[in-house]
Design a protein around this nucleic acid. Structure first.
Length: 466
RNA sequence: GGCGUCGUAGCCAAGUGGCUAAGGCAGCGGUCUGCAAAAUCGCUAUCGUGGGUUCGACUCCCACCGACGCCUCCA
């Protein structure tokens, strides 16, 4: 079945048709490396991960580019405060970012270009925009003139009239040079606040504005028109709107076919953002003892266009859900029965589960509904678990491994049985046969202390690590 | 002021103009078990409020209440 994605540009679910068959070109707005990324940032990166993983699951080749914004007001300000060069300062947070996404099992992008490595590409673009009359100089800075771009506002669905009234009273004092309040800066003339951070270019001494990096780098690595551009909803305006204006102004071509935006993660009902101070970092959650899988699962299990009200409760619930699923895997791996009379029935259940999952995911990545199909399959399999044979167990594991290509949270390596543990289990079985339950319980408690939980089932003893 | 999203059980969360409103977590009761655990069965929702359209709405329309967001750096 075809994949449908909600396109912010049209406010509709649209069937996804890539420019090149079976290939996806994807640009995902990355972090500004002035601090650690917080849990809200990570939600967006995880949404993008699910998108990438699902494309790969469906057999697409994915080329994903994620930028690192390593020059802007905040990176400059913080580096000066800490007495470090801009590069030394941002390098700390680039590495921290890579570590965080690795912990959360996020598939790496093909490339993570940094803004500061692409100054010449940006200069070239700005020069051309100026030549075309879409930009103007003022006090050494260069601004994009939005009223030269007739489609300005098409992404955010804001018209230029509303922009003017909406922005009244919010003019910051250093922006008086602009002809129009919503014109945005392409190149910022150097000021003393920027310290040592500047580039001497044909445009003058200064640094790039924020929006231009994404246009320059996405087009460099993905072409003038590419398939998908993503980010958080807060990027819709002005960031992505401005990207469209400068990119389409520059090329005269359509910039991006599909714009996808993930909703916010709220904390105590409010948007989590560094400026509000209500931020949670990954390391906080790990220090509280939550597993990285539970954290990942708690952030991916909701639809990406729904707001999530984040709390430790949702990680606890996710953790319990994952434990149950992993335990199911464990039991499937320990099936001892050789033959099965119900193999066809099992296949039917698995096929239905897989179809349910795919149909849901095809519908704009409706993962909550997709998970429902998986749990339904697990439930049906549990009902007939006593009758399952080894072959069924393998089929079920294959099914879950397939699903987990997208989810990336399950544990298939739980049952490496050390010999001495096996000895204890045998010893306990003897005790049970002799109805020496006191001794049997002692062994069970002993193993529990060692982190091995035993379960007596009709098909024998099943154990798992806890 | 302009634009927009959302309000489904104790918590989280899908979904649909009309069959029993998915699923997860938690709880209670039963089955199974030497006891547990796991599993399983049962129980827990007049789908924010008030109107309207319709043979029929939780689903469409209007109003209201409430939550949140964008319009300014922000995932």
């Amino acid at each position: 079945m075809s994949l449908y994605l909600y396109n912010t540009l049209t406010r509709k679910k649209e069937i996804f048709i890539p420019i090149k068959q079976n290939e996806v070109s994807l640009y995902t707005c990355g972090p500004t490396v002035y601090n650690y990324v917080h849990i809200g940032n990570l939600r967006t990166f995880l949404f993008e991960d699910i998108l990438v993983r699902y494309f790969k699951y469906k057999g697409y080749k994915v080329r994903q580019i994620m930028n690192l914004t390593d020059v802007d007001d905040k990176t400059i300000k913080n580096s000066i405060v800490h007495g470090l060069s801009l590069n030394d300062y941002t390098e700390i947070y680039k590495q921290a970012f890579f570590k965080d996404i690795e912990i959360l099992n996020i598939t790496p992008a093909e490339k993570y270009p940094s803004a500061t490595d692409h100054i010449s590409e940006m200069v070239k673009m700005i020069t051309e925009l100026e030549k075309k009359g879409l930009a103007y100089r003022s006090d050494g800075s260069i601004y994009f003139k939005i009223n030269t771009f007739k489609d300005y506002g098409k992404l955010a669905h804001i018209d230029q009239e509303n922009l003017r009234t909406g922005a009244s009273g919010r003019v910051s004092s250093d922006e008086y040079e602009k002809e129009n309040i919503n014109d945005f800066v392409l190149w910022k003339a150097h000021t003393k606040d920027d310290g040592e951070v500047f580039w001497e270019t044909s445009l003058g001494k200064g640094r790039p504005g924020w929006h231009i990096e994404c246009s320059a780098m996405s087009m460099k690595y993905l072409g003038e028109t590419f398939d998908i551009h993503t980010g958080g909803v807060d990027n819709i305006f002005p960031h992505h709107e401005n990207e469209i204006a400068q990119s389409e102004g520059f090329t005269g071509k359509r910039f991006v076919n599909y714009w996808l935006h993930s909703e916010f993660l709220n904390i105590k009902g409010e948007k989590s953002s560094k400026s509000k101070g209500n931020v949670i970092y990954l390391k906080d959650l790990l220090e509280e003892g939550f597993s990285k899988e539970a954290i990942r699962f708690s952030l991916i299990q909701y639809h990406y266009r729904s707001k999530v009200n984040f709390s430790s409760d949702i990680i606890l619930q996710s953790s319990a859900t994952l434990d149950n699923l992993n335990h199911f895997i464990n039991r499937c791996q320990q099936i001892t029965k050789e033959h099965s009379d119900i193999h066809e029935q099992v296949q039917l259940i698995l096929n239905k589960g897989l179809k349910g999952f795919e149909d849901s995911m095809d519908d704009d990545l409706n993962i909550s509904s997709g998970l429902g199909s998986i749990f339904e399959a697990v439930n049906e399999l549990n009902k007939i678990f006593d009758q399952l044979g080894k072959g069924d167990g393998h089929s079920i594991i294959d099914f879950l491994k397939q699903i987990d290509q997208v989810l990336g949270v399950l544990n298939f390596n739980q049952t490496i049985l050390e010999e001495d543990i096996k000895k204890y289990i045998d010893e306990r079985n003897v005790a049970r046969k002799e109805k020496d339950f006191k001794k049997a319980d002692q062994i069970r408690d002993y193993l529990k202390d060692m982190g091995i939980l035993l379960e007596d089932t009709k098909e024998g003893v099943v154990w798992k690590k806890i």
